[in-house]
Amino acid sequence: MNYNIPFNKPYLTGKETEYIESAVKSGKISGNGFFTKKCQTFFEERYGFNKCLLTTSCTDALEMAAILIDTQPGDEIIMPSYTFVSTANAFVLRGAKIVFADSLANNPNIDADSIEELITSKTKAIVPVHYAGVGCDMDKIMTLANKYNLFVIEDAAQAIDNYYTFKNGETKPLGSIGHLSAFSFHETKNIISGEGGMLVINDKQFENRSEIIWEKGTNRSAFFRGETDKYGWVDHGSSFLPSEIIAAFLWAQLENLDDIQKRRKFLWSSYFESLNVFAKTVGIGIPEIPAHMNNAHMFYLVCENLEQRSGIIEYLKSKNILSVFHYLSLHSSPFYSEKHDGRILPESDRYTDTLMRLPLYYELSDSDIGKISQFIKESLK
């Protein structure tokens, strides 16, 4: 039997085109209109974020964060090597030096215990990336940030609707802990708008300036609120606002966030139940995440080596099932390897060679997961 299971399939709730049509008919399809405000308010009220600004991508949100903390040439920014290039590019564009940290042995997140030795007098910020939506060790990261007076910018691209429990028992949404955070609504994420993102401003010192940067360096938003009698160019900025069409699409998704999350968590659990015992018998790692810390963004395997991963991917491909690897370590990339300080980051390189992602999207069926799991087992015989 021929299957046709893509790696990802964007889910439509049924309201997207209706809201897009409404936005078009309103006569305002540029940014910061009705749907933009609805989406931003949703996040502020549901998760207690101080201030939210929709952006055209998570990349843009990270670039805004780099501007907000006044990143200068020579500043050092600590982040994991095992992440998407946008995490680093946002700061490289401002002239910063990226200091890469290794991942944990049991999780692709940054090894928080390795951070302090990387801090120098030039360090300006730590950028933890919540891989697969799972929170980094924010207890240790925030303690270091306070000790050395550093900014923390959460790359929460994959972390929507997930939480972190501190050692004192306090639970906070991911993206609400650092001074700033960035989310993604790319079509591969849980909640989508095709391309899209959001900057979360948790530290109130950045509130006013964030809006100016967002509005191309002008005080236009303040003008339309009647807070100034004219507006002009007052700071750095760029065209970071998404159109109302993107925001309208996103609003249809946010209305169905709970349903989408319930479905994704069911599918994630189906994978776990199908593969957990088998994976352990053949030495393959799978994510073991407490239910309260799992937003079901991704289900991945960590193979024993590159050859095993390639074999599984090719076998699934022969069955018309698309699985993919993920990041290539940034410290060894063609662009940055000569700028890297030469430290070996073995866990990051191990994930580069061995981590593979399985299909996970709303319309995937339990039967599909059964077949994918069966073929993975067959591929290793």
Rank of each mutant, 00 (worst) to 15 (best):
I69M: 14
V200W: 02
K25Y: 05
Q40A: 02
L150F: 14
I321T: 11
E187P: 09
K28P: 09
A125T: 00
D235G: 11
A132S: 15
E215S: 15
M79Q: 13
S337R: 15
A159M: 04
N162W: 01
E187N: 07
L62V: 01
Y82N: 05
S270G: 10
D366Y: 06
S114R: 12
R357F: 05
N256F: 03
I5F: 01
H179P: 12
E44N: 09
M356K: 13
G194K: 02
R350Y: 08
R350D: 10
L199E: 01
V129R: 13
R225V: 05
I119F: 07
S81F: 00
N208K: 15
F266M: 14
R220F: 09
T143N: 05
A156C: 04
Y351C: 09
Y315K: 08
N276S: 13
L358M: 12
Y271L: 06
K51N: 12
L328K: 11
R263Y: 07
S181Y: 12
L241W: 03
A159Y: 11
E255H: 06
E187A: 07
N190T: 02
N219S: 06
D75F: 05
S329T: 08
C303D: 03
F223N: 04
F49S: 04
F375L: 02
Y362I: 13
Y164H: 02
T13K: 12
F206M: 09
K317P: 04
I141N: 09
G285V: 03
N294H: 14
K204V: 06
Y131P: 04
F183A: 08
M298L: 06
D353N: 15
E170L: 11
K15Y: 10
E378W: 08
V282E: 05
R264S: 14
L118C: 01
Y351L: 03
I5D: 02
K339W: 03
E244P: 10
H297E: 15
S238I: 09
I29V: 14
I213T: 13
W214V: 07
G175T: 00
K262M: 03
T13E: 10
I191D: 06
V127L: 03
E314S: 15
D139I: 12
A252C: 00
L250Q: 10
T36G: 08
A125V: 11
Y3P: 03
I29G: 01
T13R: 15
N295I: 05
I110K: 00
P80F: 01
S337P: 06
L358Y: 03
M356G: 09
V85R: 14
R46I: 10
L345M: 07
R309W: 06
F185R: 06
Y82V: 07
F249E: 10
G178Y: 08
I246S: 08
G135C: 07
A182E: 09
E304F: 09
T17H: 09
